[in-house]
């Protein structure tokens, strides 16, 4: 069953066309990767689907709901880790998790989540004093605190050390195994290859390639997704 259905999605910022026409479908329980160069429109797709931006045209359904008309209801059932976000400087890790949990009808146990993501030792640390990687872990935990059916993760491993990155991969697989659908925006090809069931490559506001990592590699006669990516992107420029 499709959890996200996007058809001919368009979005312009003033005169700049960020999404020309994006069409893609994400099935329940898969890890769906979105790849593409800087400025391709990946974040814009995620922000439209998670109700943060109003698209100009096309159709959009997440869990069968249109984020434009049933935003509040949808936000109870999805979680997002945004590329661009912050918390108040003086808030402590534990306070942030507790506060975000209180917004949801059926929240996860924030203390358990804090343990799971290795944040317990930082419970009393202030947000402003956290390193980039710790902030990132906190944002991932905040994306999950509402017990979402779909999570959007926009460049989630950017800034993580190799250990934390591997830990995160394991936890994302766990999430999928529990039935959560994951939409993952990334610039790391090894990450996409290791985690994603299917991938969409976006360039200049359009989906230019779609398929499993294996299919994309075969299609471009490459050895790895990294090589495949360069071949595929080159063909479209």
């Amino acid at each position: 069953m499709a959890v996200i259905e996007i058809n001919g999605l368009q979005k312009s910022y003033r005169t700049h066309k960020a999404l020309d026409s994006v069409t893609l479908t994400v099935e329940r329980g898969e890890i769906f990767g979105i790849l593409g160069p800087n400025g391709a429109g990946k974040t814009t797709v995620v922000e439209c689907a998670s109700g943060l931006r109003k698209p100009d045209g096309g159709t959009l359904r997440v869990l069968g709901m249109d984020p434009r008309t049933r935003r509040r209801e949808l936000l109870q059932r999805i979680g997002a880790q945004l590329q661009e976000a912050a918390l108040p400087d003086a808030i402590k890790v534990g306070e942030a998790l507790q506060m975000y949990a209180s917004f949801y009808d059926k929240p996860a146990d924030w203390r358990a989540l804090m343990q799971e993501w290795g944040l317990a030792e930082k419970k009393r640390a202030r947000f402003a004093g956290l390193s980039g990687g710790w902030k990132q872990r906190l944002f991932i935990a905040l994306a999950l605190v509402g017990n979402p059916e779909v999570v959007f993760l926009d460049e989630l491993t950017t800034g993580l050390d190799p250990d934390a990155r591997r830990l995160t991969w394991g936890l994302i697989r766990d999430m999928r195994d529990r039935g959560v659908t994951v939409v993952l925006v990334t610039h790391f090809m090894d990450e996409a290859e290791a985690l994603c069931d299917r991938i969409a490559v976006i360039d200049q506001g359009r989906v230019v390639h779609e398929g499993s990592p294996g299919e994309l590699i075969d299609r471009s006669h490459a050895d790895s997704l990294e090589d495949a990516y360069f071949t595929l992107i080159e063909r479209t420029v």
């Binding site: 936000l75 945004l82 661009e84 976000a85 108040p88």
Partner: peptide
Amino acid sequence: YRERHVLKRLRATPA
């Protein structure tokens, strides 16, 4: 909060 995208993060919740 607006300038630093604290509100943006809150906007992605049911608050």
